[in-house]
């Protein structure tokens, strides 16, 4: 068989975001990945900063003075937001991936209902819980004296 020329058409990262009309779970999937990467970045930075303690008191005080700036406070709050989302969405994913929230297989009868419909109420509850924790955290971060 002669070799057919093909044009590669894999979506790549674009495929994470879809076409804007796709399901909400797709965006949660993407956010879960992005927040996961964000938390990992924070973790690495955290190690770098706290390791300054090993270099002596002076180095430590200087590092603390830098990260005490308001921009870092906002950054820390963003880390907290990422954490809240990642934790609650992760809880949903654990339950879904263990088949607890997917429902049993059923014969497909139109209009089809899928496992997405089964887990959706729980997804909404988890997102509300995440939002509440984010708001409470924001109050604590910005309005309570430390």
């Amino acid at each position: 068989m002669p070799e057919v020329k093909r044009y590669p058409n894999r979506l790549g990262i674009k495929g994470w975001f879809g076409g804007g009309r796709w399901g909400v779970e797709r965006y949660l999937y993407t956010l879960h990945r992005l927040t996961g990467l964000g938390l990992l970045t924070y973790f690495l930075m955290h190690i770098v900063v706290t390791s300054r303690r090993a270099l002596g008191a002076e180095s430590w005080t200087a590092a603390m003075a830098t990260v005490g700036a308001p921009i870092f406070k906002v950054g820390e709050y963003l880390v907290f937001v990422a954490f809240a989302f990642h934790a609650f969405n992760g809880l949903r994913l654990v339950l879904v991936e263990l088949g607890v929230l997917t429902g049993r297989p059923e014969e497909p009868v139109y209009p089809y209902e899928s496992s997405l419909d089964v887990q959706r109420p729980f997804m909404v509850v988890m997102m509300i819980a995440a939002a509440v924790v984010m708001l409470l955290g924001g109050y604590e971060f910005f309005f309570m004296a430390h």
């Binding site: 779970e25 797709r26 879960h32 994913l93 991936e97 497909p108 139109y110 899928s114």
Partner: peptide, 16 residues
Amino acid sequence: CHYAGECSAVCPKGVD
């Protein structure tokens, strides 16, 4: 797979 669920949303046969 981390349950983006898109496969089930688009399946024309309801296979999920």
